[in-house]
Design a protein around this nucleic acid. Sequence first.
DNA 1: AGGTCTATGTCGTTT
DNA 2: AAACGACGTAGACCT
Lengths: 242, 242
Amino acid sequence: MAPVTTLHRPTHRDALVAVTEALEAGDLCSILGRCTVEYEGRAESSLGAGDRLVLLKPDGSALVHTDEGRTPVNWQPPGSDHTAAVRDGTLHVVSRRESPDETLTVAFEAVYQLTAMDADDDRELDLRQTEADLQHRIVDDPGIVEDGFEVVEVERRSTAGAMDIFGRDAEGRPVVVELKRRRVGPDAVGQLSRYVEAVRREEGFEESEGDVRGVLVAPSVTPRAEELLAREGFEFVGVEMD
Amino acid sequence: MAPVTTLHRPTHRDALVAVTEALEAGDLCSILGRCTVEYEGRAESSLGAGDRLVLLKPDGSALVHTDEGRTPVNWQPPGSDHTAAVRDGTLHVVSRRESPDETLTVAFEAVYQLTAMDADDDRELDLRQTEADLQHRIVDDPGIVEDGFEVVEVERRSTAGAMDIFGRDAEGRPVVVELKRRRVGPDAVGQLSRYVEAVRREEGFEESEGDVRGVLVAPSVTPRAEELLAREGFEFVGVEMD
DNA sequence: AGGTCTATGTCGTTT
DNA sequence: AAACGACGTAGACCT
């Protein structure tokens, strides 16, 4: 039934009790208040006082959201330990993790509202039009790459890593296929290049079945990527994602 | 003073009024409730019913958070248009944007709590230990790269893009420096490689001042990246970020 | 609006 | 735990 308990403009001491209980209970805890934020870990940051929403999750995530942006100004990843304390009469929320050693400290001047929700949520997101979907489509219909193309192996491993699709063209030449769900830049060409080079090094293809081909399959290419493709002698095949 | 107004278990019609007013007023709006979520745009997704926190920001961002993860299950970037409506007696929140055309639809079976905050926040995040900081450090003290190194140009542009630092070594040979604030993988070597190639192509360095050198400056390198560096004849210089 | 790159990227998967 | 790559990446900066 998802009980939700709310405190309005609680004293810092009452807020402390409520946060502690919410963390104990495994509740999703949302705090609206005026706060400063310090972070130290992989990098470090300071944020002056402002009105923000702080979200503490039972999995150890912490998020500090301002009134702008999709991305939190500050955060802590899942697996962190949240603790609350009152120091100098003000509420402090600290989230720590080790490896890497990182600490997020939120100091509230004022707490406007504190809410704890016992969230009931067992549904998982069903996401379509991913790169994996494109891979499956090509396995089902290799002609998407080109006439006569055959899939030999998916996620074939090499010293350069796993390539999306390894196959053969109509003449039996080895083909490395790199997939992207969106318009590709220079980085994707670099990736394809590393795989093709690895296949060339690892197997004596040149003499037996012809040189290794590289094919990039994506909705479109940027100009710089196109130039790189041409320079490396690779090809591009356009696909729609829907 | 950040007025915060809260509704507890409002009717869907009352929730509609409150959301609409909050969006009008430019408030940060947080909704706790049981909902399903549909997304269609660059990809598409469905999410079954569960208890979540939905955050609507005055800049047009929308976030749907479950009780797990740093990343929202679903979202809409800043610049989207939020609208609310009651259909079949239940509250629907829709966030749309064009270019790309994307729609997020949140349908509430139940609203546990609805909060609007007139957030006052003009402070910006001060972030340290970024790549830009490393760049400044090297401009101030080029010896970090190597003895006798001189910075010629920062963000020098080439047909392959802007390189972090372009300089000369003690013998006057051209050096392309690529910076990373953390341990680097194969992609960074590819980047360096593209810049070095561009410089080689664009200028007749080989004959006049010797071959173009490539140096990767970062805290550390992964094995695959190290192998690539060696193969391309590039060098690595280790730095601490603190 | 599109291209390119950084990020405390995060997240999943595999070694 | 480290490595590697995908992500509806987001965000910044530049053309």
